Simulated scan of single mutants.
Amino acid sequence: MKLDLKIQPLDSWIKKTAEPLLIAGPCSAETEEQLVATAHLLAKTGKVSALRAGIWKPRTRPGEFEGIGSIGLQWLKRAKEETGLPTAVEVATAKHVEEALASGVDILWVGARSTVNPFTVQEIADALQGADVPVMVKNPVNPDLSLWIGALERINRAGITKLAAIHRGFSSFEKSAFRNEPMWDLAINLKTHAPELPIINDPSHITGNRDLISYVAQKALDMDMQGLMIESHIDPSVAWTDAAQQVTPAALSELMSHLTLRKPEIKSADFNDKLSQLRNQIDKIDDLVIQKLAERMQIVQKIGEYKKDNNITILQVNRWDEILQKRTAYGKALKLDSSFTEKLLELIHSESIRRQTEIMNKDAAVAENLTHA
């Protein structure tokens, strides 16, 4: 289902200094000297389109540095006057919105901790009524596409048409190399729902580690995201917040120089003909896969009925283990990733269990309906 968002193109509200679009700056504005000096170095690279800085910082626990506060808006104003870079800050309350707009901040963004709460998002949306300012919405902390979409819709309904999403990854209990799991499929799903919505990737918060930023940034560009937001500090080693994920302006410039910007399509008859042929092959195979899955589920139905007639439990652990081991080994021999094969099998198995459960409980459901008739 396509979202009914009224959106202006990204290049109508932010001028690209270079390709790809880059919004950069320190995680937190710490001192006026630190912010302004960083801004000058970023502007000097010729690669940054807007300066970002945290003014109000939502922290997990009290007692941590929670941002310099409103005075930082004046530092941003000075940085903008001296470098010409538009400025961007995170807002989490109506008061933040009012102060940021009054100080001439060019771009606002809604943070992940705010996106997760519809009450907070609505408060921000109400404060934005009548404003002509670009707003970017980060994905919620938890992997919930509906919350992300809902936040975008609330901001859009407040009259904000200069709108973009920021993909910054999602919290997960599973330990991995990333601070926040990218869960690329959710970002792709959002793009499917709203093809015209610009999505900007935040590799700093996804990785939590400056050494992985280039890897995630390149993958984001390969997936046709419209830009990057990367944290940069004049001296990350002494940063007051998120030191490990910030890079110096010089390192940022070097990183950007090594990224490859690919085109979403090539306007060439030969290329498009070849692509069309390959896609037609995929379509035919997909049709066969769906057909075979449907045939498999018909057999699953028969097995469920047989189990019911003979009073056999739905789950046969030994049989499931056998399927998992044999099919994973077969997939590996065919050059399929084992993790992919396991996930696919688990999804098919879950649907098989669901169908057989329906068969087992059919008589009980009919009896209950007759009782309430």
Score class of each variant (00 low, 15 high):
residue 344 L to S: 02
residue 330 Y to L: 15
residue 334 L to N: 15
residue 363 D to V: 09
residue 323 I to Y: 04
residue 346 E to W: 03
residue 320 W to N: 02
residue 327 R to P: 00
residue 323 I to K: 01
residue 354 R to F: 10
residue 318 N to W: 08
residue 332 K to W: 04
residue 341 T to W: 03
residue 331 G to S: 04
residue 364 A to S: 08
residue 351 E to H: 13
residue 316 Q to S: 14
residue 333 A to W: 05
residue 343 K to P: 00
residue 333 A to S: 10
residue 360 M to C: 06
residue 353 I to R: 02
residue 328 T to E: 03
residue 361 N to I: 07
residue 349 H to G: 07
residue 330 Y to T: 13
residue 326 K to H: 10
residue 349 H to W: 13
residue 354 R to D: 04
residue 330 Y to N: 06
residue 349 H to R: 12
residue 360 M to T: 02
residue 366 V to I: 14
residue 334 L to F: 07
residue 335 K to F: 12
residue 364 A to K: 09
residue 355 R to L: 13
residue 361 N to D: 06
residue 368 E to R: 14
residue 339 S to T: 11
residue 357 T to H: 04
residue 325 Q to C: 09
residue 320 W to M: 08
residue 327 R to N: 02
residue 331 G to F: 02
residue 337 D to R: 07
residue 351 E to C: 05
residue 350 S to D: 02
residue 316 Q to C: 15
residue 336 L to T: 01
residue 321 D to E: 12
residue 359 I to K: 02
residue 354 R to C: 03
residue 341 T to K: 06
residue 354 R to V: 01
residue 323 I to E: 01
residue 330 Y to Q: 13
residue 357 T to E: 05
residue 328 T to G: 05
residue 354 R to E: 04
residue 338 S to E: 15
residue 368 E to A: 15
residue 320 W to H: 04
residue 358 E to C: 11
residue 345 L to D: 01
residue 358 E to S: 12
residue 341 T to H: 02
residue 332 K to A: 13
residue 344 L to E: 03
residue 325 Q to T: 13
residue 325 Q to M: 10
residue 355 R to P: 00
residue 341 T to I: 15
residue 354 R to L: 10
residue 317 V to T: 12
residue 320 W to T: 06
residue 344 L to P: 01
residue 318 N to K: 12
residue 337 D to E: 13
residue 368 E to Y: 14
residue 333 A to R: 12
residue 321 D to W: 10
residue 329 A to K: 12
residue 324 L to H: 05
residue 327 R to Y: 08
residue 322 E to A: 15
residue 361 N to S: 11
residue 357 T to K: 03
residue 357 T to Y: 08
residue 343 K to W: 04
residue 333 A to V: 05
residue 328 T to F: 00
residue 319 R to S: 14
residue 334 L to T: 06
residue 342 E to S: 08
residue 361 N to W: 11
residue 320 W to K: 00
residue 331 G to Q: 04
residue 329 A to D: 05
residue 365 A to G: 02
residue 335 K to Q: 14
residue 318 N to P: 00
residue 321 D to N: 15
residue 324 L to N: 05
residue 336 L to H: 09
residue 317 V to R: 09
residue 364 A to N: 10
residue 348 I to E: 03
residue 353 I to Q: 01
residue 365 A to F: 12
residue 356 Q to N: 03
residue 365 A to V: 11
residue 338 S to L: 03
residue 319 R to K: 14
residue 346 E to T: 00
residue 355 R to W: 03
residue 338 S to N: 05
residue 331 G to A: 07
